[in-house]
Design a binder for these strands. Structure first.
Lengths: 245, 245
DNA sequence: CCAAAAGTGTTTGACGTACACCCATGC
DNA sequence: GCATGGGTGTACGTCAAACACTTTTGG
């Protein structure tokens, strides 16, 4: 038996995936499609985040974990609760009302928004009941509810956070090249970085470990592979109090 | 007539106030006191944050603003929503259950937590129906519900944020001395700062404006007063993409 | 004149930034 | 052998960090 839902509280998940091939930061979205009763008119044809009600007996974090697993099958991914959205009219535009009509959904629902960081290649889109699609965060489709706002706020949080915490590696495979790390930063921040300076800076870090391995199966000069050591990072982590206002 | 409350969603407010005289970062708390029915035993004697249910027709931000005004009479203070707390058992310890018993309160309430930044001197404690008290954030009393956790998370957020945004000035009077700014940083971060370096760094900023005024009514050498110009700060604000992981 | 806090300069080292070419590999 | 991306070195300027004494004022 399904646990009891809290009808006015939900968790919405912004699933960020980095597409290493196309060097693109993407968001995983599911389609919302509705025709009029006479089937002549398309009333709704847009995308939304996945989310679900919070169950009476679970924490908000658990809900987010559950939603991600349901959507992607994945567990143990980087997760961050970043903001609650609770405007009284956040589900109140015409399309949203039409969509909600037949759902067990309170019109005044507050959603606790999370974002996840993972690799697009880890998600199997084909055999997926939700038929989700990846969209570049810089080129989002039409979005239902207030989900565009939620995605953009998640993205802002990610931009700030990736500058001071090594979360970038959650978007990359365990073994990566320096240039791939640079690609991720450039995609997320929308900037260009000098390769020589970036490379020097990264290689200098003790927790970026050169492996005894090179890329295989590519048709150009194969690059040196590295890994990120969380252990070493945490051991040498020293809080810095640099005031930069 | 009071608007309808949402019974399972509240906003809790961590009110930070800087006490410039004692150089102390404080939190404003209200007392929770309950005796047993025979009045022989003190069942509850601790402190909590102020909070209130969200009304059906208001935003979460509005709720926070309303709670602060009700508690302090103040409006237009710096406000930040920083986290939602929704563990199923967050109000479930013995004392909390006893306290809630006679209140219109859902046992599974999710709270959206905000913090405010202001000056202790701006709050009139005497003629206040809630009889709130200031406690140093580094020396909190016994706290009800999960409010200690909420305060500590607010404080962590503040510590990080004050390094990269000029929110520190929300804790100071409009006219302040350089040493007062240093006091605030030292109190919040729990560190010691070299006065010469700090002074040079601050005075160099275009948005820290030396006034044609000095301190008055103090019994020592009066210090130069400065103000913070939000206008200039915003005009010269340049996003920096320094990756410091 | 004394107590107390305000205010002041220099040196050193680390690091961010700018910048252009050669190298190794697979095909 | 050639196209493609991988990889490399130097010079300059900024800024954080360390460090101790003099000055000004009110009482």
């Amino acid at each position: 038996m399904e646990p009891k839902k809290i009808l006015n509280i939900s968790v919405d998940c912004v699933v960020f995936g980095f597409d290493i091939t196309n060097k693109s930061l993407n968001v995983l979205l599911i389609k919302r499609f509705l025709k009029s009763e006479d089937a002549k008119e398309v009333l709704i044809n847009d995308y939304v985040l996945t989310g679900y009600h919070v169950y009476e007996n679970e924490t908000l974090d658990d809900t987010a974990t559950r939603v991600l697993k349901e959507l992607t099958g994945l567990t143990n991914q980087y997760k961050k609760q970043f903001k609650a959205f609770g405007d009284p009219d956040r589900l109140m535009n015409e399309k949203d009302l039409a969509w909600i009509k037949n759902q067990e959904f309170n019109l005044r629902t507050t959603t606790i928004a999370y974002y996840f960081l993972l690799k697009t290649e880890d998600v199997d889109l084909k055999s997926n009941t939700y038929q989700p699609l990846w969209f570049p965060v810089s080129n989002l489709p039409e979005l239902g509810f207030d989900h565009e706002k939620i995605i953009l706020e998640a993205y802002e949080d990610l931009k700030v956070k990736c500058l001071s915490e090594p979360i970038i590696f959650k978007l990359l495979p365990d073994k990566f090249t320096i240039n791939e790390v640079q690609d991720v930063y450039e995609s997320i921040l929308g900037i260009e970085i000098d390769n020589r300076n970036f490379r020097r800076k990264l290689i200098k870090k003790k927790y970026i470990i050169a492996l005894d391995e090179k890329q295989v199966g590519i048709s150009k000069k194969p690059a040196q592979l590295y890994m990120f050591s969380k252990d070493i990072y945490q051991k040498m982590f020293k809080k810095n109090y640099l005031i930069s206002i």
